[in-house]
């Protein structure tokens, strides 16, 4: 089990993963504001590398992502409970984030860019696994 991480290590990687997503969004809006697409391509590339590295470490190598999306037949009763609860919590968090973004953008009169849409999809897809990784002592 050399690919397993301690709970604290997992939490650090999860923070890095979502921080990298924010970094990509930040560089995207900076590039729009300063009208310098190169800023997005360089900063976004750094963010993307960080996302890929942290994703690989915390979700892929630990099998966390695979575990959360496994069929019920391959999980035991405790795992089913843990993953269902994580799905429920992820749904609540995602809905709140999506509503805040939709209202926020409509208030400032801006349209939601494809980068935000892509990041929201990524969030929806990884959040259940991130919640399990964040809360569970052992995987």
């Amino acid at each position: 089990m050399e690919n397993q991480l301690s709970k604290h290590a997992r939490q650090r990687w999860i923070i890095l993963n979502y921080f990298s997503i924010l970094l990509i969004i930040g560089f995207f809006y900076l590039s729009l504001y300063f009208r310098k697409p190169a800023l997005f391509f360089t900063g976004g590339a750094v963010g993307l590398v960080l996302v890929v590295v942290s994703y690989a470490r915390v979700f892929f190598k630990t099998n966390l992502w695979k575990m959360v999306y496994k069929e019920k037949e391959y999980l035991d009763e405790r795992q089913v409970q843990v993953f269902l609860q994580a799905m429920r919590q992820a749904y609540v968090v995602f809905v709140i984030v999506a509503i805040v973004l939709i209202y926020g953008f409509s208030v400032i009169g801006e349209s939601i860019h494809v980068v935000i849409g892509a990041c929201l999809l990524y969030l929806a897809h990884t959040l259940p696994a991130a919640i399990v990784g964040w809360k569970e002592e052992f995987l």
Partner: peptide, 17 residues
């Protein structure tokens, strides 16, 4: 027929079967 971590949770009385 469970995951080995579940045995740990049971033994530590952190999970009711």
């Amino acid at each position: 027929g469970v995951n080995f971590q579940t045995i740990g949770y049971l033994e530590r009385e952190e999970y009711n079967p």
